[in-house]
Design a protein around this nucleic acid. Structure first.
Lengths: 255, 255
DNA sequence: CAAGCATATATCCGCTATGCGTATTAGTTA
DNA sequence: TAACTAATACGCATAGCGGATATATGCTTG
């Protein structure tokens, strides 16, 4: 490519009002942990392309709508207004990722508590839960299965999005406060450990985990205890962001 | 907002070919460490808006151009083809971030070696170096200064982009292999430590740093030594990605 | 050419975090 | 009341790290 050609290409693109623009969408990975298994909520496509396959809920970004607002709107529309922690993940912009037209999609991770997950499933019957295979520890795409064990093939590049989301979540689980987004207001240390173990796909050492979490200074003991157990009830804790050590250093909140 | 209204809004946006689309751009934060100080390369705007202020080099994404390809093209056009490690950072999509029109920008971090930084500066005279204030350790926007110490106010939300890039770089510096992108093919342990100290803005313990880096298994001793020193020359090492432990777990490479 | 110097490299020590096992406690159930 | 389960507390060995110190090596200088 000669210098003048690239210069011309630059000038040609300078005022995009006169040229074709890619469409911009947001796709949401709605993640919950029902029964302690990482599960996402998917919509089955009923038309071309990838008819029959399952896709992440998404929608186009309005011309007067911020990215985060678009993600919140899609959450509201597709998941029946269930509350969730939204966090921007990554933007996928391969040219051929959608055969219909050029679509750039900003992927968001939405973390649902067990209650929010159940609520979304109840209010939005079109959503299908898909558990992420525990073998998805390494690299590469991820496989998702329905409750009956049948494989749920994903549409477009959504398997890549799910894989990236899981990697990112695992990476920041121990250093940020995202884990609490999957728990109710009050929770026990065992529940917190269950969340970590479910996402990491490994077993964790109990005393070490307790010490680490308590030393972080993010846990506030409430003096209350769980009820209805057939064994010694555990104390309930509350998440309290630590002002000295920000809970999410690399977190989004860009705008 | 009633259910039917949001349904209508959804339908209205369903075929974006008929509706206005945001423009999509990429902005590059070209970062080098000349003289051991984190420095970025900026273009001074000569027209409205933010005339006179400095901005990150950027460009619009072509309709048949992948995001990563657009970032590589902007690097080529604006930095004279200097080699750099490109990595997608975050996508900024506030509605009013550009007063002319709706522009969503995908921010990329480009890491330049000392040689590449000098080369870019030589080949692209329009680029102005701006050192990032060392006080930018905490949150919030970042302040950038010219060589003569004058403040360089940034245009648009670019101070936010720079701040986020720095945070992300600091966060993954010790766990990924990005640090090597700022060093030449062969380097000494002292140079590697200088890179880490410059980015983190702190002093590091030398023996501990050496041990940590050597134990990672990413460093291959070459048996060669630096020359021209007036003291004992240090051994030169080479970066060798470790197959067992991936060097960049949460790295981009999405598509 | 020998002494001095600056920095790389190696070794040692103490503190802290962590893995892991074990004892104790507090509820429920038989 | 005894057995059982899981929470909580404690003890201990090990690994990693901050920090200081000692040794090695090449250049400079008188």
């Amino acid at each position: 490519m000669s210098r003048t050609e690239s210069e011309a290409a630059f000038l040609a693109r300078y005022d995009p009002a006169d040229y074709a623009r890619p469409a911009v969408a947001v796709d949401l990975m709605l993640l919950g942990l029902p029964g302690g298994r990482p599960t996402i909520l998917l919509l089955q496509r009923d038309r071309h392309p990838h008819a029959g396959r399952h896709a992440l809920p998404g929608g186009f970004v309005g011309i007067d709508e911020a990215l985060d607002a678009a993600a919140a709107r899609v959450l509201h529309e597709k998941a029946g207004g269930a509350r969730a922690h939204l966090e921007q993940l990554y933007t996928f912009g391969a040219v051929e990722r959608d055969p219909r037209m050029r679509i750039i999609t900003v992927a968001y991770l939405a973390l649902l508590t067990e209650a929010a997950f159940a609520e979304a499933l109840a209010r939005a019957p079109a959503l299908h839960p898909g558990t992420i295979a525990a073998s998805s520890a390494g690299e590469g795409p991820v496989t998702v299965h329905a409750i009956d064990g049948a494989a749920l093939p994903l549409a477009f590049d959504h398997a890549e999005i799910v894989a990236l989301a899981l990697r990112r979540l695992r990476g920041k689980l121990d250093t940020s406060a995202v884990g609490f987004s999957l728990l109710p207001e009050l929770f026990t240390l065992r529940q917190l450990q269950d969340v970590h173990e479910a996402i990491l796909g490994t077993r964790l050492n109990k005393p070490a985990f307790r010490r680490r979490m308590l030393d972080r200074g993010w846990l506030e003991p409430t003096g209350r205890f769980e009820t209805g157990t057939s064994y010694r009830p555990a104390e309930l804790y509350r998440f309290r962001p630590n002002p000295s050590h920000p809970p999410s250093p690399t977190l989004s909140q860009g705008e």
